[in-house]
């Protein structure tokens, strides 16, 4: 079976979810992500860091009312990686049906 599309980065559930949210939206901020995914600060931050290091997302820091406000965006690379990974999962399912 061809598993070349399967992506180890997305084995972590939270990372896959983050990527899904960023695929569906132009951008998303940290606190909204936290609320939506019901994640802790530390867990969310470290997984966002991983995605950033992979070049799947970009980070944009600014200040709103003197509070830090961090926005995340997908990159073209991240978009492709997410789509490929979903294709891999799909293939896995099809494989098991056979």
């Amino acid at each position: 079976m061809d598993l070349s599309l399967y992506n180890k980065v997305f084995e972590n559930r939270l990372r896959l979810q983050i990527m899904g949210v960023l695929l569906a939206n132009e951008d998303y901020d940290f606190s909204s992500l936290k609320e939506l995914l019901e994640a802790t600060d530390g867990n969310l931050a470290s997984n966002l860091k991983t995605l950033e290091k992979e070049g799947y997302i970009t980070v944009e820091k600014s200040f709103v009312d003197r509070k830090p406000h961090t926005r995340y965006r997908k990159t073209t690379k991240g978009q492709k990686a997410f789509a490929d990974h979903l294709t891999a999962l799909e293939n896995l399912i099809k494989q098991q049906y056979k």
Binding site: L16, G20, L23, N25, L37, L89, E90
Partner: peptide, 20 residues
């Protein structure tokens, strides 16, 4: 296994919808 996978994909789908 397969059930987990299907559940996982369904979950991602609902998160994407909920977020947008």
């Amino acid at each position: 296994d397969q059930k987990d996978l299907i559940k996982e994909i369904g979950h991602i789908r609902s998160i994407m919808e909920k977020s947008s």
